[in-house]
């Protein structure tokens, strides 16, 4: 599903990746650990098409992202991948419902508002936030906020979910729930093509539950066991 070939990347003088390689062949839950500042978020942005490598190729679902223009990359972010962040990144001046519908605003598909609203209804019911839709984010708990963010990431039905420390700001109870949701999403039998959950985490426990466990270090990416 994802293939990184000889990726080099730096922020101006700050070298982050040298000749980074990775292949994820099948749909799975994949965890990524590594010390803070090593470049985990940067790694997700490369796969999410928000950053371009200096050299090397990022191929996702057969699509070479370097060769895409901004419009088709945006389209890719809008429909193929979903982002979830540690700090949720909800917009405070929009209600839960409006926040979830943001990807619909940038959708280039002909599918209308009706379809988006239907999808929203289904998602809020599944995520158990149907009673919160008209509230504003600052009146929600951390877990509720993250569930809103997940609904937003899933609105356009992506095949890949990129989660950047999704439980980093949550208590253990909420963490449990969020993880269950993400796992359930990945394992969902109804999805025609397989789904990939790529999750950055600090938590050894969480990482351990993944099908595939990756570690990012100064030497690059490597699979870890146990």
């Amino acid at each position: 599903m994802i293939e990184l070939k000889g990726i080099n990347f730096s922020y101006s003088a700050n070298r982050i990746f040298s000749n980074l390689n990775l292949e994820i062949k099948e749909s799975c839950i994949c965890s990524l650990v590594g010390r803070s500042g090593i470049g985990k978020s940067t790694f997700l942005y490369l796969i999410g098409g928000l950053l371009k490598p200096e050299s090397g190729e990022v191929v996702v679902l057969g699509k070479n992202l370097d060769k895409e223009n901004d419009i088709s990359l945006s389209n890719y972010r809008n429909t193929t991948v979903g982002f979830i962040f540690q700090h949720f990144h909800l917009i405070d001046t929009l209600t839960v419902k409006e926040n979830i519908l943001i990807p619909h605003l940038f959708s280039r598909k002909a599918a209308g508002k009706e379809a988006a609203l239907e999808r929203l209804d289904m998602l809020v019911r599944e995520l158990k936030i149907e009673d919160l839709v008209d509230r504003y984010p600052d009146s929600l708990s951390g877990g509720e906020r993250q569930r809103t963010a997940i609904a937003r990431a899933l609105l356009n039905n992506p095949q890949i979910l990129l989660a950047d420390e999704p439980t980093g700001n949550l208590d253990s109870d909420s963490t449990e729930k969020i993880l269950n949701i993400l796992h359930a999403w990945q394992k969902d039998e109804t999805s025609k093509s397989g789904r990939l959950l790529l999750m950055v985490t600090h938590d050894k426990n969480i990482a351990g539950k993944a099908d595939r466990k990756l570690e990012l270090s100064e030497d690059g990416l490597r699979d870890i066991d146990g």
Partner: peptide
């Protein structure tokens, strides 16, 4: 800045 970055990550193009 944060909002623009978020919009971009959710599918807004530079042109949008």
């Amino acid at each position: 800045k944060r909002e623009v970055a978020l919009f971009r990550s959710l599918g807004a193009s530079i042109k949008d």
